[in-house]
């Protein structure tokens, strides 16, 4: 439909305006503000002056061992999540698909944690992993007390434990997306391959995986961006401890800004998180547009 009269134009504007105003005030203006704050120093008190300090905040961050550690933790979180999420999700999806008995049950069980608040998920696992938690009780009961360690307190295990919970809580999400992808592969292809004598394992590697490649790639990129943004799990399970060893840029940003009142530094970390996500998104655009070309 074409908009002809100027009155109609005003009506059109009025329809878009509520969403546009809320979105601009609470997302776009703060986004611009974030760049400004990242170049400034502010102590967080309303009315106190904001001083421009240039790139000092960024300099300070990259000289801070705590931030470098949080970046390393983030890299570990991203790499391990990617290594486990999509492959396990793919195996789940392939196993569920078809004439599997109890498919609906299995799908629901794997997916259900993804709809839960991560605070509840984190707390739930916290009670399992805490020093006198149920995991260590079980290990002791079956005579493996040597393996019982304070999972979330020990330096060697704390970060890996959080990453494990992140994998657990997210795998169902990727499974559902891959399942939707699997339904687009025609059964003819599999039947033809079966007649040609291809074993199920061969069919998986030579048909399923190649045909799902675009969706697998997309899952991986979504996983990268998602893992960069993890906050709740760390906040609930360790608060970044012991001694900041499990901090991610997100939790460090929270502490710098809202615990130590270094709002400029916090904002600078926020900008770095944005840039990392942006790089991930651009990467995914490049990959998906390639998919459409081929």
């Amino acid at each position: 439909m074409k908009i002809r009269s100027s009155k109609a134009k005003w009506i059109a504007v009025c329809f878009v305006l509520p969403a546009l105003i809320i979105y601009t005030v609470f997302q776009i203006i703060p986004l611009i503000g974030a760049f400004y704050f990242s170049l400034s120093d502010w102590n967080g008190l309303a009315g106190s002056p904001i001083t421009f300090v240039g790139l000092d905040n960024f300099k300070r961050i990259f000289e801070d061992a705590g931030f470098i550690l949080s970046l390393k933790n983030m890299a570990k979180m991203v790499i391990l999540s990617v290594l486990f999420h999509t492959p396990i999700a793919l195996l789940m999806a392939v196993a569920i698909q078809g004439k599997t008995k109890g498919a609906k049950f299995f799908k629901a069980v794997y997916f259900v944690p993804t709809v839960f608040p991560l605070t509840a998920v984190g707390l739930l696992w916290y009670f399992i992993f805490m020093p006198n938690g149920s995991l260590n009780t079980i290990l002791t009961n079956i005579g493996l007390e040597k393996l019982a360690v304070p999972w979330l307190v020990e330096n060697a295990t704390a970060m890996n434990t959080i990453i494990f919970v992140n994998i657990w809580a997210g795998v169902g999400y990727y499974m559902v997306i891959l399942l939707a992808g699997l339904t687009t592969i025609s059964t003819d292809v599999y039947e033809a391959a079966a007649i040609d004598g291809a074993t199920p394992v061969k069919r998986f590697f030579y048909i399923t995986v190649p045909l799902l490649k675009p969706i697998i790639k997309m899952c991986i990129l979504m996983d990268i961006i998602g893992s960069v943004k993890v906050f709740d799990l760390v906040f609930v399970m360790t608060e970044g401890g012991p001694n900041g060893l499990t901090n991610l840029p997100t939790t460090l940003m929270y502490q710098e800004a809202f615990k130590y009142d270094h709002y400029g530094v916090g904002s600078a970390i926020g900008i770095i998180i944005l840039l990392i996500c942006l790089a991930g998104t651009i990467l995914s655009e490049v990959v998906t547009s390639k998919k459409e070309e081929s």
Partner: peptide, 30 residues
């Protein structure tokens, strides 16, 4: 409706999909 701005309005809305909550916390707190 067909009008020139509609595409740009959509692009403007889509910018927000890339903004992580942590990035805007300080300005929102301000």
């Amino acid at each position: 409706f067909e009008f020139k701005a509609s595409k740009w309005v959509m692009v403007f809305f889509l910018i927000g999909m890339m903004v992580p909550m942590h990035t805007i916390l300080v300005p929102v707190a301000y």
